[in-house]
Lab assay of single mutants.
Amino acid sequence: MMAYMNPGPHYSVNALALSGPSVDLMHQAVPYPSAPRKQRRERTTFTRSQLEELEALFAKTQYPDVYAREEVALKINLPESRVQVWFKNRRAKCRQQRQQQKQQQQPPGGQAKARPAKRKAGTSPRPSTDVCPDPLGISDSYSPPLPGPSGSPTTAVATVSIWSPASESPLPEAQRAGLVASGPSLTSAPYAMTYAPASAFCSSPSAYGSPSSYFSGLDPYLSPMVPQLGGPALSPLSGPSVGPSLAQSPTSLSGQSYGAYSPVDSLEFKDPTGTWKFTYNPMDPLDYKDQSAWKFQIL
């Protein structure tokens, strides 16, 4: 009977010793046993002879290597770790002494450095960015050149030099007046198309007034536009458009034309069986010896 009264063996659950049927240790109110408190290391007290050895090595170098620390530790009968900690504390003490010396050398008012006064946003004049500046400075420094007289040679050079070769001289006033084509001369031969040399188009003023001019072949195509416009036809070669000034309004060009419109200028042929003959000019830059190549039959 006494065997049943004795408590059973101890069981360990999660490293906790349980005594038989008792489960009081598993209750929430019972805390787990805490780790033992780490003991504080005792402070090391250095003797005068030990301090002399350490100070002598510190005077040589503030960062001794492990071999120098072990050698000193053997002399003063201390572990190497204590020597390492002593050098660490000695360097910190040396830095603190240097900072105190710097503070003593500075004057009393030198510690508080005078800061520059901050400028207020409204006091300083700042350039306004509302208006974009002129990058080319046209509004201040540029002045347009004065327009020359209508009959000045410089204007003629600016007008005619675009179309004339570089080897030719500017046309005088008398020749510029001949550039304007007359109405009857352009409409006299509506079906004849003559190819003149390129030099005649640039230099010869008579080429624009003769039936064999460069633009005589364009007349049949330009004249039928007159009834559609409801007024006189516009002429690209009329009046002052080739003269001194090219800047004319469309209203000033509306009254200039080749001449009176005639039914002869239409595109319809009077004789459907007729042929169109292209007159060959020996001055043509295209060297075609066979003139029969310039004739064709309209079917």
Rank of each mutant, 00 (worst) to 15 (best):
M2T: 00
A3V: 13
A3D: 00
M5S: 00
P7R: 05
Y11F: 13
S12H: 06
G20P: 05
G20D: 04
S22N: 04
D24V: 13
L25K: 05
M26P: 05
Q28P: 06
A29K: 06
V30Q: 02
V30H: 04
P33D: 04
R40P: 08
T44E: 13
R48I: 09
S49Q: 09
L51K: 08
E52G: 00
E55Y: 11
A56Y: 04
T61I: 03
D65Y: 15
V66A: 07
V66M: 04
E71L: 10
A73D: 15
K75Q: 11
I76T: 07
L78R: 04
R82S: 14
V85Q: 12
V85W: 15
F87C: 12
N89V: 15
N89K: 14
R90N: 12
A92P: 15
A92N: 12
Q100V: 09
Q106I: 01
P107I: 05
P108D: 05
G109C: 02
A114Y: 08
R115L: 02
R119W: 01
A121T: 06
A121W: 07
T123N: 04
S124A: 08
P125W: 08
D130S: 08
D130A: 10
V131G: 07
I138D: 03
Y142W: 01
Y142C: 09
Y142E: 10
S143Q: 01
P144G: 05
P153A: 09
T155Y: 15
S164N: 02
S164Q: 01
P165G: 01
S167G: 06
S169F: 14
P170I: 08
R176I: 10
L179S: 01
A189F: 14
A192N: 01
A192K: 10
A192D: 00
P197W: 12
P197Q: 03
S199E: 03
F201N: 00
C202S: 03
S204K: 10
S204N: 03
S206K: 08
A207M: 11
Y208A: 01
G209Y: 13
G209L: 14
P211H: 03
S212T: 05
S212H: 11
S212I: 12
Y214E: 00
F215T: 01
G217N: 07
G217H: 08
S223K: 07
P224Q: 03
M225C: 06
M225Q: 00
G231D: 03
S235H: 11
L237I: 05
S238W: 12
G239Y: 12
P244R: 11
P250I: 14
T251V: 09
S252D: 01
S252E: 02
S266H: 08
E268H: 11
E268Y: 15
F269R: 02
F269G: 00
K270Q: 11
P272A: 14
T273P: 02
P282A: 03
D284C: 15
L286E: 02
D287K: 15
D287F: 13
Y288A: 04
W294G: 02
